[in-house]
Amino acid sequence: MAKDTNSNQYQDQFYKQKHKEEMKYQVITFAMMIAFTIIAFGLVAGPFSKLFVVPVILVLAGVQVLFQLYYFMHMNQKGHEMPAIMIYSGIFAAVLTILALTTITWI
């Protein structure tokens, strides 16, 4: 840890600026998530066919989750390689599980 107060000050300022920048993206992300949610609810409330609505709202949900993971949970930053591997492995197992339970359980 750098104990040199002088350089620390500049560093602090730099990081503060950086965090502010990041925060701006977070707010934009949030606005988009709210927009997606409104679109999804609107599609369901509106007079659209089921075959159109279901895939679209699933894609919207997927994008929202990526927003959460990459922006809110900072997976876009460095040092998140292992978390990414584990989350995607989890999603892989999750998809297989849901696929099996919705297709081959005698429904």
Binding site: H80, G90, A93, A94, L101
Partner: peptide, 16 residues
Amino acid sequence: WFFLGGETVLFASLFG
């Protein structure tokens, strides 16, 4: 984070 990876499967079982 790894725990959350496991939680993904936990909720997937419930969703399924």
